[in-house]
Amino acid sequence: MKKLFSFLAIIAIVLASNCSRIPENNDPVIGIWSRVDVINSSETNKLTIRQEWIFNDVYLGRYQKYNGSHLDFKTDFSWIEDDGVYTISYPGTDMINDIVSMKESPEGMLLEDLKGAILAKRE
């Protein structure tokens, strides 16, 4: 009798685990987006600032800011999509939320804010 109950318990566990699938997120924003700004600090010195957003499929990501080759700042972010508009939130920081949408251009896919300024380009 114990073997029958054990067998039924194993079958119940297998059936219950098959019912709880995580839906797949195929949002087109998933991937690496970056922005590079070059600032001329003098005639001979150029300062390169690179910002990078890495979006993953569980509505989270990582933001990193490089000053030249030095990692200046990094934090995690969360994102949501509502009718083609993405809101990027940086909890635990004083950074304001970025509200952007994807646009296609001759340069590639871009993230633009509501005023049309480019936040990042897909890598």
Rank of each mutant, 00 (worst) to 15 (best):
K2W: 14
K2L: 11
F5P: 04
S6Q: 10
S6A: 13
S6T: 09
F7L: 15
F7D: 14
A9I: 15
I11M: 12
I13W: 02
I13L: 12
V14G: 03
V14I: 15
L15P: 12
A16Q: 04
S17E: 05
N18M: 06
E24N: 12
N26E: 11
D27G: 09
D27T: 09
V29P: 00
V29K: 01
I30S: 12
I30L: 12
I30N: 08
I32E: 11
S34F: 10
R35V: 00
V38D: 07
I39Q: 13
I39M: 07
N40R: 13
S42A: 09
S42D: 10
E43T: 03
L47A: 09
I49N: 04
R50G: 09
Q51Y: 09
E52K: 09
W53F: 07
F55C: 05
N56P: 02
N56W: 05
D57Q: 11
D57H: 10
V58H: 13
L60D: 14
L60E: 15
L60F: 14
L60N: 15
Q64A: 15
K65Y: 08
K65P: 05
Y66I: 08
N67Y: 13
H70P: 01
D72S: 03
D72R: 06
K74G: 03
T75L: 02
D76I: 11
D76W: 02
F77D: 00
S78N: 15
S78T: 09
W79D: 01
W79C: 00
D82P: 03
D83S: 08
D83F: 03
D83N: 09
V85K: 02
Y86D: 06
Y86R: 06
T87K: 03
Y90Q: 03
P91E: 09
P91L: 09
G92C: 08
G92R: 08
T93K: 14
M95Y: 13
M95P: 04
M95S: 06
M95C: 10
I96R: 13
I96Q: 13
N97C: 03
I99N: 11
V100Y: 00
S101V: 00
S101R: 04
M102F: 02
K103Q: 09
K103E: 12
E104S: 15
S105E: 14
E107W: 05
M109N: 15
L110G: 01
E112T: 12
E112G: 04
D113R: 13
L114Q: 11
K115I: 06
A117S: 10
A117L: 04
A117E: 07
I118L: 07
A120T: 07
K121E: 00
R122Y: 01
R122L: 05
R122Q: 04
